[in-house]
């Protein structure tokens, strides 16, 4: 219990130090997006639906219908796209946040000599590094997910307000029922954790660079892998390292998710996904209509945790991360000696 209090305090400490980067950034971006959405809602929900109609046509062949008579499935698709529009941006923001946080985490305390103060308290180097790792791997992604939720709730409310003033379009209640917020949120938390786990060795490497760098941790974090990759390309002529690094950045996506429109939109049965789609129907079943549930958007069917957990790359990455974290602990312990 004492350890839990201490570690919570340590994670709070990280948020005090990096308040701007970790706590403010995602919510400032959320506020900007919502401001834009308020501006954009002037076009009216109907017109907006008409705008994305073309995309829907590609997504679901033969679904060309006018915005005014959107069938429930298409309304769901429109709302899903609206809700997920900002996700790519937020993933990019998260990458930037984690990157700069991890590089600074074990460097700043040496630069300002406060490491002497932190180490004069009964906190082991292992626990310090683990708390910084948890901040990067868990706290930062969850803060970003929270900001995404703010954007989603905000833009749904804005859309509903817009719908209330738009004649002929879907009603606010229809919009609300067409938006699978609950399952989206489950999916986003899952996605954030999957991403962070997949990135763990990269984050651990940045922490090690941060603990090691005499100055300019950015250079120590970026240069060695880039230099090794270039050397590989020039001597052996292959790009194994670069593709491995790229895979480490985006490789979580194909493992943690199955981007199959048919599964999402429930157009065709898929025997393989039974284990994953269990329970999804209840989350989605807002309308209470059995047929609508079956043909409705099965957002959670996107998640393939089994496939992620079965990926050797996940476990290999965790082992590499453990070694790098041990290195960071060791370096923090002995770095200040000379």
């Amino acid at each position: 219990m004492n350890t839990v209090t201490a570690m919570t305090t340590q994670v709070r400490r990280e948020l005090w130090e990096h308040r701007g980067l970790l706590a403010y950034t995602p919510f400032v971006i959320a506020a900007v997006l919502l401001a834009l959405a308020i501006g954009g809602v002037g076009f009216g929900v109907g017109q907006f639906s008409a705008l994305v109609e073309g995309d829907l046509d590609d997504l679901i062949p033969g679904a060309g219908v006018s915005a005014r008579e959107l069938p429930p499935e298409l309304l769901r698709a429109v709302m899903l796209l609206t809700m997920t529009m900002s996700l790519t941006l937020f993933v990019a923001v998260l990458v930037v946040m984690i990157f700069f946080y991890a590089l600074d985490a074990l460097y700043a305390e040496r630069r300002d000599r406060s490491i002497l103060f932190w180490r004069s308290l009964p906190v082991s180097d292992l626990r310090t590094v683990l708390c910084k790792l948890v901040t990067a791997v868990l706290v930062a992604p969850l803060l970003v997910v929270a900001a995404i939720m703010v954007v989603q709730v905000g833009s749904l409310l804005i859309a509903m307000a817009g719908a209330a003033f738009t004649a002929g379009g879907p009603s606010p209640g229809e919009l609300w029922r067409a938006t699978p917020l609950g399952s989206l949120w489950v999916l986003q938390v899952y996605g954030a954790i999957a991403m962070a786990l997949w990135w763990l060795p990269l984050i651990a490497w940045l922490l090690l660079a941060s603990a090691w760098a005499p100055k300019a941790p950015l250079v120590w974090g970026v240069l060695p892998p880039v230099a090794l990759g270039l050397i590989e390309r020039m001597t052996v002529g292959t790009s194994w390292l670069f593709s491995a690094l790229g895979e480490r950045v985006i490789g979580f996506a194909p493992r943690a998710f199955e981007f199959d429109a048919r599964r999402v939109f429930g157009m065709a049965g898929d025997g393989d996904s039974v284990d994953i789609t269990i329970g999804a129907g209840s989350v989605l079943g807002n309308s209470g209509d059995a047929a609508a549930v079956e043909s409705g958007l099965n957002v959670l069917a996107l998640a393939t945790p089994g496939q992620l957990l079965a990926a050797p790359g996940l476990w290999g990455g965790l082992i590499v991360a453990a070694v790098l974290v041990a290195g960071a602990v060791y370096v923090r312990r002995y770095r200040g000696e000379s």
Binding site: N2, T5, A6, T8, T9, Q10, R12, R13, W16, E17, E109, D112, R113, S114, L116, F117, S120, L121, P122, V123
Partner: peptide, 27 residues
């Protein structure tokens, strides 16, 4: 306990945070 010269307390930390932190980690 250890006090070195004035330079080792982190400049970004607030006084009440310093109290919170030590209270949180020091039994």
């Amino acid at each position: 306990c250890f006090i070195a010269d004035t330079g080792i307390l982190p400049r970004w930390l607030r006084v009440h945070q310093a109290l919170d932190y030590v209270a949180g980690v020091h039994p």
